[in-house]
Design a protein around this nucleic acid. Structure first.
Length: 383
DNA sequence: TCTGGGGTCCTAGGACCC
DNA sequence: TCTGGGGTCCTAGGACCC
């Protein structure tokens, strides 16, 4: 018997953080609103019961936009844009602080609503998922509409869904009719719906690769599909060139992965102002220790220990360096992490001022409580 | 007016082992 | 006794994604 053709959905919540905030502040609906920055701009409840909001123009300091409403995007304000730049473009936009606890809560709610219908879900972060619809008998459009309605019923929020023969195409087409979109695509549609799009729409072609391609006069996916493979190999290496060629033709065999274990857990922070290793030694040391403490708490809460401890430094000129150190045994202990991270710090030049410090634990394994005593016993035997 | 915080995957050289 | 080849681990950096 022939296997069924694959049917993969990509579901993306529309302007997720901003939309969660609009549930809380419905009077902001229809206005340009941005989320981001340091969390010192909470709306203030006034005597008459209305809120006084911060405006983007009032913001000073570091930080980037995390999300913006579609009205703010119309003014040119997008995710990852520096706050000061955004303030120039949309000074009157309302500025709200991020509330990750709320977003995580809504994330769990929409995922629960979806998996009640389609259990085969791959988690791709707080606001998007892939679904494998292959084994469901329902008509594609009816099933997708049912999922969208379930998300709306559970959260009050809209999402966009793309359905296609693979993850690559599903991801691209969930974006085609945003917000509140539903796009269903087949291989036969690749030439007229996918090829006219810029290469940047392909998940895995970032700013660097797009710029290199532009220098070869390759800007849209069709141009990539017709590009000479030898030319691509010369500029990108064999592996990446062959991947570029495949994806431009809509080919992607990656399965929907419904469970996975984390590879690393980290904490990092960008300082309010650049700090110097010597001059600001006390402050830096306190931040360093606090990062290690919070990282240890994260590990313990999630039930992991890690054997490789690493640090990340970003200098005032934005150059980034990392160092890491593998220990003989895995740990989730703040003091042990701090000690190992301290050793890493000794191997890094500290003349320039720093803007960021981070600590990471990798080579993770589950703790006894999380994995069951039998596994640990077997681990000891293996030693 | 420079550019957050949390991740994944890939590459590449050297060490070390068989 | 001018020096293979494969596998794995460790470390560092970089591209990319949400």
């Amino acid at each position: 018997m022939n296997p069924r053709p694959r049917r993969v959905a990509h579901l993306d919540m529309d302007a997720f953080y901003a939309s969660v905030e609009l549930l809380r502040y419905p009077e902001l609906r229809g206005q340009p609103v941005v989320i981001g920055g340091r969390n010192d701009h909470q709306p203030v409840m006034q005597a008459d019961g209305t809120y006084a909001y911060s405006r983007l123009r009032d913001y000073v300091g570091r930080g980037v936009i995390t999300t913006s409403t579609y009205e703010a995007r119309a003014l040119g304000v997008f995710s990852a844009m520096g706050m000061m730049k955004a303030a120039k473009l949309a000074p009157d936009a309302v500025l709200l602080p991020t509330d990750f606890d709320a977003y995580r809560r809504y994330s769990r709610m929409f995922k629960a609503a979806v998996t009640a219908i389609v259990p085969e879900m791959e988690d791709r972060g707080i606001d998007e998922i892939y679904l494998d619809l292959t084994d469901h008998d329902d008509d594609t459009r009816a099933l997708a509409l049912r999922i969208k309605q379930a998300v709306r019923d559970a959260t009050g929020l809209s999402c966009s869904i793309g359905v296609a023969p693979n993850k690559l195409l599903a991801k691209i087409c969930s974006d085609l009719e945003k917000p509140d979109g539903l796009t269903i695509l087949d291989h036969a549609d690749v030439a007229h719906r996918i090829w006219p799009l810029p290469v940047r729409k392909i998940n895995g072609i970032g700013p660097k690769a797009a710029e290199k391609l532009a220098k070869l006069d390759i800007r849209i996916i069709e141009e990539l599909a017709h590009a000479d493979l030898g030319l691509l190999q010369k500029h990108f290496g064999r592996t990446y060139a062959e991947w570029l060629h495949r994806v431009s033709h809509g080919i992607d065999d990656r399965p929907v992965v419904t469970s996975s274990e984390p590879k690393s857990i980290s904490r990092e922070t960008t300082f309010e102002r650049d700090l110097h290793a010597k001059h600001d030694r006390e402050i830096l040391s306190g931040i360093f220790t606090r990062l290690c403490t919070r990282l240890a708490e994260d590990l313990q809460r999630k039930g992991y220990v890690g054997r490789t401890i690493g640090i990340k430094l970003r200098y005032e000129d934005f150059k980034t360096v990392t160092r890491d150190l593998s220990l003989p045994a895995a740990t989730a202990d703040a003091t042990a992490i701090r000690r190992a991270a301290g050793e890493c710090l000794k191997r890094v030049p500290l003349q320039k001022r720093l803007r960021l410090l981070g600590v990471r634990v990798s080579t993770l394994s589950k703790t006894a409580a999380a994995s069951g005593a039998v596994d640990v016993f077997q681990g000891q035997l293996a030693l």
